[in-house]
């Protein structure tokens, strides 16, 4: 048996069968990882200046502000509708555009579909770069290019969706059973024809499910984009918080909560049907 340094200190457990044969179970490595995680957490506390005393003494303020939001100012609701719909429109359009655009690039990122290794690596690096950019930064840049408003927000969400769906899709394509693809090629089909007939039917349900999940998330992200002027509900949320009009803030949050809840429930139902 091959004993590492660790095994020499923490001896493997020995099982002896009635006929004298032996089986060994090596000692668990979990304690090492637990100690590492604890040490890193301690280090993080030191670096970030996390102070328990401030947290305990000021946490009450959070509930004071929360209390001021109630009762929410219902008369403010008519002003909320428009930005709320803007937010939904931004996330829907952005999600659809990003998801559709990502498909050809996801194909080029899959080693089993694209035979050229250089193309595959270039595409993957591109997807990683796009996913590294925080959506709020993309939105900020987009407002500089397209001006303030929902167009900038839509672009930001489309870029995020492109990176997110693209990555999930190429990972899905790579796990697909290639048998049918091989059969199509043996029948004289081109790679593109084989992809359409043999791989799309296998990937489509997962792709649609990912698109829905992405859309759910985007409604929440889109709510923040107004902070950088990219339109939607974040715009009035930012405004009302800075003016300390907490009852209006309460109204906005409730409207947002209900919207997100409805969209998530519908999406969850549809996703269950799909996969």
């Amino acid at each position: 048996m091959n004993l590492t340094f660790y095994d020499r200190i923490f001896k493997p457990r020995e099982y002896v069968l009635p006929n004298g044969k032996k089986a060994y179970k090596k000692a668990s490595r979990a304690p090492v990882y637990i100690i590492l995680i604890l040490a890193m957490s301690a280090l993080s506390v030191k670096i970030t200046g996390f102070d328990m005393k401030i947290l305990v003494s000021r946490i009450g303020q959070f509930f004071v502000i929360l209390g001021e939001m109630f009762p929410p100012k219902t008369s403010y609701m008519p002003t909320v509708w428009n930005p709320l719909f803007d937010t939904i429109k931004m996330s829907l359009l952005g999600s659809v555009v990003g998801a559709i655009l990502s498909v050809p690039f996801a194909m080029l990122s899959s080693t089993n579909v694209c035979p050229n290794k250089i193309v595959v690596s270039v595409m993957r690096v591109m997807f990683s770069l796009i996913r590294t950019l925080p959506t709020i930064v993309i939105a900020l840049v987009a407002t500089l290019i397209f001006g303030l408003g929902t167009l900038a927000g839509t672009v930001a969400i489309a870029v995020f969706s492109f990176g997110y769906i693209g990555k999930l899709t190429y990972e899905e394509i790579e796990t697909v059973d290639m048998g049918a693809f091989e059969a199509m090629q043996a029948m004289g089909a081109t790679r593109a024809q084989a992809f359409i007939s043999a791989i799309i039917p296998q990937v489509l349900p997962f792709y649609l499910s990912n698109c829905l999940f992405n859309f759910e998330g985007n409604v929440r992200y889109a709510a923040v984009l107004g902070y950088v002027g990219a339109g939607g509900i974040g715009l009035i949320l930012n405004e009302k918080i800075s003016w300390r009009e907490y009852p209006s803030v309460g109204m906005i949050l409730i409207a947002l909560f209900v919207t997100v809840f409805i969209i998530e429930s519908v999406s969850r139902y549809l996703r269950k049907k799909l996969v």
Binding site: A180, E182, P201, Q202
Partner: peptide, 14 residues
């Protein structure tokens, strides 16, 4: 030329 495989190689989801 037709080809038949050990694992059938059908599109199972359809």
């Amino acid at each position: 030329i037709g080809m038949i495989f050990q694992s059938f190689n059908l599109i199972t989801r359809t």
